Amino acid sequence: MPNITLSKAILIAGLIGAIFCAYEALTKNTVENLGSNKKLSSSGLLENWRNGNVILLIRHEERCDRSNNPCLGPDNGITVLGSERAKEEGTRLKSYFELDNTDVFTSPTTRTVQTSDIMLGKASLLSEREAICGNDIIDKLLKHKIISRNLIVVTHNTCMKDLIRSSGQQHSWRPEYGSLLFAITKNKNEIQIVATLNAVDIPKYPSSI
Rank of each mutant, 00 (worst) to 15 (best):
R111H: 04
Q114V: 01
R174F: 05
K186E: 15
D201R: 11
I164L: 09
W173N: 02
L11A: 03
K204Y: 12
A131S: 15
I19H: 00
N157L: 06
N189S: 14
P175I: 03
C71F: 07
G14M: 02
F105W: 15
L15S: 07
P2A: 04
Y177F: 10
H171D: 13
T110M: 11
D117Y: 12
V154I: 04
S7I: 08
N135L: 12
L151N: 00
T5Y: 06
V153E: 05
L45V: 04
G35Y: 06
T155F: 02
S208V: 09
G82K: 08
H60L: 01
S67L: 03
V31G: 00
L125D: 07
L72E: 06
A13E: 00
K140H: 09
S7A: 07
V54I: 15
P74D: 09
K188N: 09
D136R: 10
D162H: 08
I4L: 08
E88T: 15
E128H: 15
L26G: 02
F97R: 13
I152Y: 01
L163V: 00
C71E: 03
V153W: 01
N68E: 12
A183K: 06
A131K: 11
S41K: 10
G121W: 05
L26E: 08
D136V: 07
F105V: 01
L46R: 04
V153D: 01
A18E: 05
D162S: 03
L34W: 08
F20W: 11
I164V: 14
R165H: 06
I209D: 13
K94N: 14
N189K: 14
L57E: 09
E98R: 11
T112E: 06
I10A: 03
N33M: 05
N187G: 06
T27D: 02
I202M: 15
I55E: 00
S43G: 09
N198Q: 13
N187F: 12
R50N: 13
S167F: 00
R174V: 11
S116T: 04
M160C: 00
I209R: 14
C64A: 12
T79M: 07
